[in-house]
Amino acid sequence: MIEIKNLSKIYKTGNISVTALKNVTLKIEKGEFVGIMGPSGSGKSTFMNIIGCLDRPTSGLYVLDDKTIENMSDNELAEVRNNKIGFVFQSFNLLPRTSALKNVELPMVYAKVSAKERRSRALEALDWVGLGDRTHHNPNELSGGQKQRVAIARSLVNQPAIILADEPTGNLDTKSGEEVMEIFKKLNKDGVTIILVTHERDIAEQSKRIVTFRDGEIISDELNDREAKLKSDPA
């Protein structure tokens, strides 16, 4: 699904160059639920941006769904983001003055889905995240948890290969955060690959595999015992 080999990212500002990622190698299979941890400045955001095709690596290989994300034009990257990746942000990033329904329809607009199908798929997605009764509300009429659920609905309408969530619970109260995490778990159970970036240990621990970054390198990559245990022993 995702294959990353010797990936580096170096930012150059004038004569100073900063290495944000150093020879990172990582493989993520379909259906995984990966938590990415690390303090700020560890390179996890840069890593996210590259995996999300928002940025290009300086060197190294990135294969997503058998496609090499290299030398792709901006428009090709936009297409990959549209088809293969669903984004969930910390600050929701819904379009203001635009109903939940229209927000969820947006990725399908760019994918040139017919208006009729857009509507039915968006309604279905909103229903799935439990907002079937909020479809015509604008973001300013929704609570934080509801906004994030709209954002999740938007991220999954194009049936992406992966959902990238960047601190999705960062702006939410504990209860809403838990609800959002439940949705991710449910999605993952349906086979969606989820990559979740967080600096909160207890959020990361709800994933099945935790990758930790420090100074642009992966310092640990382990299966989450607790989650694994819960799975093998539901009692």
Binding site: G52, L54, D74, N75, A78, E79, R81, N82, N83, F87, F89, N93, L94, L95, P96, L106, P107, Y110, A111, R154, S155, N158
Partner: peptide, 13 residues
């Protein structure tokens, strides 16, 4: 920001 969001979810130039 709105433009950034649109680009992130697949709006081409």
């Amino acid at each position: 920001r709105e433009i950034g969001v649109k680009k992130a979810i697949g709006a081409k130039r």
